[in-house]
Design a protein around this nucleic acid. Structure first.
Lengths: 184, 184
DNA sequence: ATTTGCCTATCAAGTAGTAGGTATGTATGT
DNA sequence: ACATACATACCTACTACTTGATAGGCAAAT
């Protein structure tokens, strides 16, 4: 892994463990083993690093979506949940949840990138929810977009909340959402 | 309102608009019209201010709970929603959502206080959900605590997410949760 | 020979927090 | 009534440190 990739990787971890305004170039430099000025070489401003982190998430999500194209909506739903499984295992929160709190302090470019990511996520989930309902696999009354928003927000919140309650609450909420969607 | 109250009020607003690590004593001092040293007089460390903010929320919530003691679970549910209505109107996020992101950067005292607040909230909501179900007003299959966790996390998330999507999504999610609980 | 990827050294601004001073109460003992 | 003593609520001035960011150098790879 190149230093550039290492920086993004570590910044992403710190972002989702501590928040955007709680990690510095110094923190990253220390762990990667270079100087802060070298990070500025790769990412002139912190916003550039922020955009790079989100871009990596967009690419990752696009890859996941592409891998599951044409597959069963149930499999796609499981793939969606697996994202949060991984987050939860590593005690991270999701990108959107992390940046939403600090949203008003972010540079416009970062805000726009984040919207791009959440739109992509929302579009994907809406899509397989709708297909799944048409195929008689899922059951819900709302518009697909609304239901997608609800499912996403639920997962977004629970990875945050379990920091305050109990680890097992995560599995419980996940199971409840799944059961409700599939309940017929 | 005393300067002390003004400080807490303003810090609370900034906390929920920008996040814990994005406001400083200087920011508060400028707006309240005193010097940072005077804020340190009232709150020696930022953690003390953090604890004071959460304490104010605990007191406010206790008052709300007490006001609705013995009232219909439906009224209590509406009271719960009204908390988030107000947040949403002012473009704030909820206290727990705001601090959950930065949770790992917080002093242990602040972390414990926040847990105290979320426990209180969870206990209240669990209570009126259970009562409401016993009275045949609500319908849900999960344990009351689990359902409470789900309802709370849903509202927590949506006030964050609407910063990225559309204002009207808030009302939509609120209506959907209500409809589902009352759906018989 | 130029680009790449790092370095040293430095900056201005901002961070929480401290030391010590001052004016204004507000009790209390004589 | 009056001095003593202490508390309140602010101030100026400062420290030690962190923040993101810049300028300029240097060695290795292309």
């Amino acid at each position: 892994m190149s230093k550039r990739e290492e920086i993004i990787q570590l910044a992403d971890t710190m972002l989702r463990k501590k928040g955007y305004n709680a990690f510095s170039y110094h923190d990253i430099a220390r762990e990667v083993g270079i100087k802060t000025a070298s990070i500025h070489y790769h990412f002139p401003a912190k916003s550039d690093l922020g955009v790079a982190i989100i871009n990596q998430h967009i690419e990752g999500l696009k890859r996941l979506i592409h891998e599951h194209e044409g597959k069963s909506p149930v499999k796609q739903l499981n793939a969606f949940f697996s994202i949060y499984d991984n987050l939860h295992k590593e005690n991270k929160v999701c990108l959107v949840g992390s940046l939403a709190t600090d949203f008003n302090t972010l540079d416009a470019r970062v805000q726009e990138k984040l919207k791009e990511f959440s739109d992509l996520m929302l579009h994907w989930v809406s899509g397989f929810l709708e297909t799944g309902r048409n195929e008689g696999l899922f059951e819900f009354e709302e518009e697909p977009r609304s239901k997608a928003l609800m499912v996403i927000s639920h997962m977004l919140a629970i990875v945050q909340l379990v920091r305050l309650t109990h680890k097992q609450d995560f599995a419980m909420v996940k199971a409840a959402i799944k059961k409700e969607l599939l309940k017929k």
